[in-house]
Design a protein around this nucleic acid. Structure first.
Length: 432
DNA sequence: AACTCTAGCAACCGCCTGTGT
DNA sequence: GACACAGGCGGTTGCTAGAGT
């Protein structure tokens, strides 16, 4: 408070003749704004200053109203259901906070964004696992049955035809894809993730040492160009590689170093879920009570922190990192009955389904990190960073990367279409 | 008790799109 | 079509409270 800047109040240009307050809002300012909106309605935010006497720029007023003063806002922590919904939505649409907010009544984009970022940070630190071994095994089996050769996904093909300038993004046509229960996939995914209590009670179950692929909203390439809604750019290639085709990626020799040793570094990126999700057999805790994660910062991961790199040396590592998928460890041992979803069955298609216009529980589009990772199979494996458990602060990010690397610039023609078709094992036209 | 670290949150910034002229 | 403006969006920053040492 008390900060003052010069702001024209229109757009993002700043003028020198008008000074607006910045910083936290006072209750008096809130009352002025509320009174203004009561009288004039929301919108025309730049007129607020004129009519209300507020020394705030229009954008600031709008933000304050939208994020805090709107009467329909929910206050308090996210409920379990909301958290789950956020994860679902993020899996399907990426960092489209505003869109996600439309799916979560009473929650603002800013709130969701903060929630997500905080959660991801926390999970990164914890290195929590997501997918059970069964999933990986099934994926590998499926890959073997399909006879797909990892060569098609490794260096030559993908690197040459897809990386290209590594600066552009394919436009894909998913109209033929069918969804196979993306939401239920997430449900099962979540069900496989331990609750905080589970982890407390059975830390050994959750040692981060497997092959689960986790989305990361971070590690976006620098200088990434932001695109708006119609863009089907790949904001990042994080996501869940979940179906049998994308799972082939997991089977890549580049990914699989020493089985069981793909430990997740404490700072690795993933969409972990040591949060509040319970298995379907466990009742969710509803209400605003927020289950806090236990502090696992001293978690015994059966691995000396400083040994991460040594244990994960991989000739294919240290290639590139603009997005991150993390291989992590088994959690629980879900039986098929506990995993009724399409978790291992046509998941990619289920992810993509939404783009066909038949909206499911989860809005899905080609932006989906889920889809992106499925298609691109871009896996980074990151060691701990400096501030975590004594890891070498100078350690570069190690990663395993297969498949194409894209930046955020849109590519008008995608030479990787064949690659994707091969990946999907079909002759569908995913390019445009 | 003092200090440090971290999570959570509010707010800002810059870029973008849509609309009107 | 060019321009200006209003508003929206996503990323980032900075502050604060609480936990940990």
């Amino acid at each position: 408070m008390g900060k003052v800047r010069h702001d024209s109040g229109s757009g993002d240009e700043f003028a020198i003749d008008k000074a607006f307050h910045k910083g936290p809002w006072t209750s008096a300012e809130d009352q002025l704004l509320i009174a203004y909106v009561d009288k004039h309605g929301d919108g025309n935010w730049n007129a607020v200053q004129k009519h209300s006497g507020l020394s705030r720029c229009g954008k600031s007023c709008r933000l304050r109203w939208v994020n805090h003063l709107r009467p329909d806002l929910k206050k308090g922590s996210f409920t379990d259901k909301e958290e789950q919904r956020v994860i679902e939505l993020h899996a399907s649409m990426g960092n489209k906070w505003a869109r996600m907010a439309t799916e979560l009544p009473g929650r603002t984009d800013n709130e969701i964004k903060n929630f997500w970022n905080t959660r991801v940070k926390r999970l990164q630190r914890l290195g929590l696992p997501i997918y059970p071994d069964e999933v990986r095994e099934q994926a590998m089996n499926a890959a073997a049955q399909n006879g797909h050769n990892a060569d098609s996904l490794d260096g030559h093909h993908s690197q040459e035809s897809l990386e290209l300038d590594c600066l552009e993004i394919p436009e894909l046509n998913f109209k033929h894809l069918q969804l196979n229960g993306g939401s239920s996939f997430l449900q099962s995914m979540l069900s496989s993730v331990p609750t905080g209590n589970q982890m407390r009670q059975n830390p050994g179950l959750f040692q981060p040492n497997i092959y689960n692929v986790i989305a990361s909203p971070y590690h976006q390439p620098p200088n990434r160009k932001r695109f708006r809604e119609p863009e089907t750019a790949f904001p990042y290639t994080g996501g869940y590689a979940t179906d049998e085709h994308s799972a082939q990626l997991w089977n890549s020799p580049f990914v699989e170093s020493t089985p069981g040793q793909f430990n997740v570094a404490p700072d690795s990126h993933f969409l972990g879920n040591a949060t509040t999700y319970s298995s379907p057999s466990e009742p969710l805790i509803h209400g605003a009570e927020k289950l806090e994660l236990p502090s696992f910062q001293c978690f015994d991961t059966q691995e000396e922190p400083g040994d991460w790199e040594a244990q994960h040396s991989n000739p294919m590592q240290a290639i590139e990192s603009d997005n991150t998928l993390v291989l992590s460890s088994p959690l629980t041992d879900p039986t098929p009955s506990e995993c009724p979803s399409s978790f291992c069955d046509g998941l990619l298609e289920s992810v993509v389904y939404g783009s066909s216009g038949e909206k499911q529980t989860t809005t899905t589009d080609p932006d989906s990190p889920l889809l992106q990772s499925s298609l691109l199979g871009h896996i980074d494996i990151t060691p701990a960073t400096a501030n975590t458990a004594g890891h070498n602060s100078s350690a570069e990010t190690d990663l395993v990367h297969f498949g194409p690397t894209f930046s955020n610039e849109r590519r008008t023609s995608f030479e990787g279409g064949d690659w994707i078709r091969q990946l999907l094992g079909e002759d569908r036209d995913y390019t445009k």
